[in-house]
């Protein structure tokens, strides 16, 4: 029981970090990114390559992966997505377009990874020593990943709430039209935020690769979970991501250990449905839509 809750909290922290990137991309850049999980898996493969090829610790690998992911996502936004943003007349039209475009992107990324790595599951052994905590045994890599996750998520939260740039990002999330009136370059902020979200999910991918097995096709699961967490927490809400992510992680771990590990997705959906039926704007969202 304690073990399940601890596992759940760690998993939940990871979900929260993953969802933070998506909530930035969707809340600020208005891009519903369905290729999100594929980016995560690509980063996981990158970390695996750095570790097995150059014996580089995944946490040092972050220093490579994060800037690369940032630049690649910036390029994706500039080349693929900003034409859609310019073309879209309404927010709904942009949503449909971005869903379809990122869907295509997801398939292309997945296809590239499939042809490079095949359909096999990958993992590598890093910091796989046991640590004793609250009378339970936990793998050290999970704890280390959680620590980095908290560090990344915490610094992002502080940057968004305490700095001038962060405030500008939040302003665009609230109202893009009004943000322009106070001299915020919305297009630039959106591009920057999209890339930031991409860098964040890439770092989550690196962290996840240290303790989970992954394959070229397992990105969809992460996209799904990130979407559910974002909607549950309320779009664009960082604190909501954290709470919803932890909620999801803990309930998943509890059901997996108490009932059946095959029912994790059912738990996700049950939670998602409850939120949709009771509070469609999310736990922390404003009831605007």
């Amino acid at each position: 029981m304690t073990n399940a809750i601890l596992t759940g909290l760690m998993l939940g922290g990871m979900y929260a970090l993953i969802a933070m990137g998506l909530t930035l991309q969707y809340g600020v850049a208005r891009i519903m990114n369905l290729s999100y999980g594929e980016v995560l898996i690509a980063a996981a493969f990158g970390a695996q390559g750095l570790f097995t090829g150059w014996a580089l610790s995944p946490f040092a690998g972050l220093a490579f992966v994060i800037p690369v992911a940032f630049l690649l996502n910036l390029a994706i936004y500039r080349v693929l997505l900003s034409p859609l943003v310019r073309r879209a007349r309404t927010r709904d039209a942009l949503e449909v377009d971005s869903i379809l475009a990122t869907f295509g992107l997801a398939f292309i990324l997945q296809g590239i990874m499939l042809s490079m790595f095949g359909g096999a599951y990958y993992s590598y052994s890093y910091l796989a020593s046991p640590v004793h905590l609250f009378g339970e045994t936990i793998a050290a890599n999970r704890l280390a990943a959680l620590a980095v996750c908290i560090l990344l998520g915490g610094s992002l939260y502080l940057a968004l709430t305490q700095t001038r740039g962060g405030t500008a990002i939040r302003a665009v999330a609230v109202d893009p039209a009004a943000a322009q009136l106070v001299a915020i370059d919305v297009a630039r902020t959106a591009a920057f935020t999209f890339a930031l979200g991409g860098a964040l999910v890439a770092s989550a991918g690196v962290l996840i690769s240290t303790f989970l097995t992954f394959s070229a096709t397992s990105g969809v699961v992460f996209t799904m979970k990130a979407l559910i967490v974002v909607v549950m927490g309320g779009v664009g809400n960082m604190l909501g991501c954290l709470v919803a992510g932890l909620l999801l992680g803990v309930s998943e771990a509890l059901v997996a250990s108490l009932i059946d590990p095959g029912l994790t997705l059912a738990v996700n959906f049950a939670l998602f449905l409850v939120v949709l039926l009771v509070k469609p704007a999310g736990l922390f969202g404003r009831a605007s839509r």
């Binding site: 869903i99 997705l265 959906f269």
Partner: peptide
């Protein structure tokens, strides 16, 4: 369907996998 389109996309995105899991279980 009472809600905006995005929720519908997300929900249907995982629906097949959900039902598959339930059937397997």
């Amino acid at each position: 369907l009472r809600l905006s389109g995005v929720y519908f996309v997300i929900f249907t995105f995982g629906l097949a996998e959900l039902i598959r899991q339930l059937v397997v279980w």
